[in-house]
Amino acid sequence: MRKLGLLLLLTIVFIGCKTTSKKEKEEVSVEKKYPDAIANVLKKHGGMEKWNSMKSLSFSLKGEKHITDLQSRKAVVKSEKYSLGFDGKDVWIQKKDTAAFKGNPEFYYNLYFYFYAMPFVLADEGITYSETTPLEFEGNSYPGIKISYGANVGTSPDDNYFIYYNPDTYKMEWLGYTVTYFSKKPTTKVNIIKYDDWENVNGLLLPKSLIWYTKDEDGKPLEPRGEATVFSSVEINETSLPDNIFEKSNY
């Protein structure tokens, strides 16, 4: 009987240790999913756990309403003269007149979503992180993280992004990016955006506005390239939206 009791005790201890060990491994795995720098930036902006708990995002800018399902990345952009979106399979557009929208719907439907959802969209699958040269501006130095994609990831796998963050707070300050969608070829031309106006929305630090900058021949930011792009009527929550919102037949 004693032997049986001892055996049961050892079994319970073994299972407990095994469970703890598995849990510890899972925690370590989560901690090591991202390099320290990007992990700290993500944490500063609310953390991936909080971001992943959200199901839908919407905002307005330039007379348009942008709505995105954060899990499937289905999207719709609505305005008075046109609507366009991605229903999970196809990109579509509806226009009230032929001159209403002259851009490329496939390129545009999630363009501002990506700029707005920084830095969280740079934690997607298929990404490689590496250090890059710090960005210098007005006597301040911002450490950088280069983000590149694996082959066949997304519509523009040759695109590169560069996050530059405040070394004291880890808040994202700048974004550099290349555009290869139209040429389908790698490029060294990097556009630069200043992120310096943030707001807390449901526990996430998201941009209130951003502004493109001109650069000198060495790639350093010089001055604003135009007026700021302002995001308003922002909603991000844990409620999923009906699929028919993203279907062409509804517009």
Results as ranks from 00 to 15, higher is better:
3 K>W: 15
192 I>A: 01
56 S>G: 01
167 P>Y: 08
137 F>E: 10
148 S>L: 00
114 Y>W: 09
98 T>W: 15
214 T>H: 02
122 L>V: 02
107 F>D: 01
24 E>W: 15
97 D>H: 12
117 A>L: 05
111 L>E: 07
79 S>T: 06
191 N>G: 11
144 G>F: 09
240 S>W: 00
134 P>A: 07
212 W>R: 13
234 V>M: 09
153 V>G: 04
16 G>P: 11
36 D>F: 10
233 S>Q: 08
250 N>A: 12
22 K>G: 08
70 L>A: 06
108 Y>K: 05
64 E>K: 12
250 N>T: 13
87 D>N: 13
164 Y>R: 01
8 L>S: 09
220 K>G: 02
125 E>H: 03
186 P>L: 08
238 E>H: 08
58 S>E: 13
129 Y>W: 05
181 Y>P: 00
83 S>E: 04
86 F>R: 00
210 L>I: 15
102 K>L: 14
46 G>D: 01
243 D>F: 04
192 I>E: 03
207 P>E: 07
195 Y>H: 00
100 A>R: 00
192 I>P: 02
68 T>V: 12
44 K>F: 10
112 Y>Q: 11
144 G>R: 11
53 S>M: 05
140 N>F: 13
113 F>G: 02
248 K>W: 03
227 E>M: 09
222 L>A: 05
8 L>P: 08
229 T>M: 10
76 V>R: 09
198 W>S: 01
